[in-house]
């Protein structure tokens, strides 16, 4: 019989200062400290990061892919939110 499941953690890594943390993968660990150590061993063997976040996977709330249309489609029709929607004469120069 498989043993009881250890907590799954999502790992986010900041590659260098100036960049935001980015999802790298996940690890299993009994607590946060061990999750950080595991994340360091598994995801930063070649200087991939300067900072690591670990978050219990169960703490992440995700949008439902089947709500994709109602959530994101309305922005598709709002082209007036983009700068190219507006006309500026060429002799005015860059704006």
């Amino acid at each position: 019989m498989p043993e009881p499941t250890t907590t799954l953690w999502e790992v986010f890594i900041r590659a260098r200062n100036g960049l935001s943390h980015r999802h790298a993968g996940s690890v299993h660990a009994a607590d946060a400290e061990m999750a950080l150590q595991a994340a360091r061993d598994v995801y930063t063997r070649r200087g991939e990061g300067l900072s690591i976040w670990v978050v219990p996977s169960a703490a992440i709330v995700a949008s439902d892919p089947s709500d994709k249309d109602s959530l994101f489609e309305p922005t598709g029709s709002k082209i007036y939110r983009h700068p190219t929607f507006y006309e500026v004469p060429e002799d005015v120069g860059n704006m």
Binding site: L8, E10, H23, G25, S26, S57, A58, I60, A62, D64, P65, S66
Partner: peptide, 11 residues
């Protein structure tokens, strides 16, 4: 990578 907990069994 992404939690199993997020799997909400879509049709």
């Amino acid at each position: 990578m992404y939690s199993q907990a997020l799997n909400n069994a879509p049709a």
